[in-house]
Every structure is written in structure tokens, then in C-alpha cells.
């Protein structure tokens, strides 16, 4: 089972990101679960969303404490949160950022990818605060856990019409960004 934690602010669509990711895995015949952090929600407040992906039925419903992967949808959170908290050894962090991030402290072995998801969202969707979908494209490229096509299929069925198409393009661009630009920070700062 692979566990994923997303860091975002309420209103940025992190729950949608978790559910698109989980439904993409579902489309590939895997078992998956997506759920929000159980908290009082207020627009702009930091929040988490989670996903679990597995080849076997998923029972566990506790909050994710030891993620395999972390997605940072809002990089302004890095200053106030330990986004790498509990990350498993060898884990991967994907950050929405225009530049490589050296401000995330890994406690074990791990990889940090950056992707200009907000910029891609701005260009494809006209909204920089919709970085959720492109971030997933980057996740697919960085981890290989889901296929690009499944993510695009998931987003098209969730948002039929032009919105789904624009998101599918954004996912593709982010995917290619990672494929073309390799990773930027690798660390064992134990």
C-alpha cells in the first residue's frame, strides 16, 4: 500500500486532487481511498488531504502518519509546516514551485521534485490557484504510481467539457516537465 499526503490551503482543491489520484488508480484496477483531514474548514487555512493506493482492498482509515509520497500544492506552507514529517525512507516530495526547493528538510533518504504547477494552471486554466491537477501529472511522472492517461481520464470524467480538457492538458505539461527536467534535490540529511 502506498500512502500520500497533500499539503494545501482550504479552497485550493486538494480534496479533489486526492480523489482524482485515487480514482485514476481505481481506473487501473487498483484499490484506492481518498479522504480529507478531518478538521474545521475555512477558506485559506492550511489543510491536508490523503490518498491510499493498493493492490489489495484497503481497510485502514486512520490519518496518514508515515506517507510514501507528499504533494505540496501551496509552497507558502513550507515555511510554517514540516511537510516532510513522517516521510518514509526513500519517499518522494513533489512541490508546486517555479524553482528547486532547498528549504525542505528531509530526515532520511528521499527525493524532492519541483514543478511550476501554478504557472501551468494559470496558462491552461486561467487560474494559478488550480495547481492541483498539474501537480498530479508531476506526481505520475515522478513516482510512476499512476499512468498519465488514467489521470487524464479521471479529470475528464470529473469535469466533462472544456474544464476537463484544460486540466488534462495541464496534467500532461506537468508530467512532461518532470520527464524532461529530472529531479533537483536528493538528500540524506540525517
Amino acid at each position: 500500500m502506498k500512502e500520500i499526503r497533500i499539503h494545501a490551503r482550504a479552497g485550493q482543491g486538494a480534496i479533489t486532487a486526492a480523489l482524482l489520484l485515487a480514482s485514476a488508480a481505481f481506473l487501473e484496477g487498483k484499490y484506492s481511498l481518498a479522504f480529507p483531514h478531518f478538521g474545521a474548514e475555512r477558506t485559506g487555512a492550511p489543510m491536508n488531504a490523503y490518498a491510499r493506493l493498493s493492490d489489495a482492498p484497503i481497510r485502514l482509515r486512520t490519518q496518514v502518519r508515515r506517507p510514501d509520497y507528499v504533494l505540496v500544492q501551496d509552497p507558502t506552507l513550507i515555511a510554517s509546516q514540516d511537510v516532510a514529517e513522517g516521510l518514509k525512507d526513500g519517499g518522494i516530495i513533489v512541490v508546486n514551485s517555479d524553482h528547486p526547493r532547498h528549504d525542505i528538510r528531509l530526515k532520511g533518504k528521499g527525493q524532492i521534485f519541483h514543478v511550476p504547477a501554478a504557472r501551468i494552471a494559470q496558462e491552461e486554466l486561467g487560474r494559478a490557484d488550480r495547481a492541483n491537477a498539474p501537480l498530479l501529472g508531476a506526481f505520475a511522472a515522478a513516482t510512476g504510481e499512476v499512468k498519465l492517461e488514467s489521470l487524464q481520464k479521471a479529470v475528464r470524467s470529473r469535469f466533462p467539457g472544456p474544464a476537463g480538457e484544460a486540466n488534462a492538458r495541464a496534467i500532461q505539461r506537468a508530467y512532461e516537465f518532470i520527464k524532461n527536467h529530472a529531479l533537483v534535490a536528493e538528500g540524506d540529511t540525517r
Binding site: A22, S23, L33, A34, F35, P36, F38, R61
Partner: peptide, 9 residues
């Protein structure tokens, strides 16, 4: 929260 808020098959 644990059940109705979750997305699953």
C-alpha cells in the same frame, strides 16, 4: 468524516 467524507470504490 471517516466514512461519508471518504471517496472509495
Amino acid at each position: 468524516y471517516i466514512l461519508p467524507h471518504a471517496y472509495e470504490p
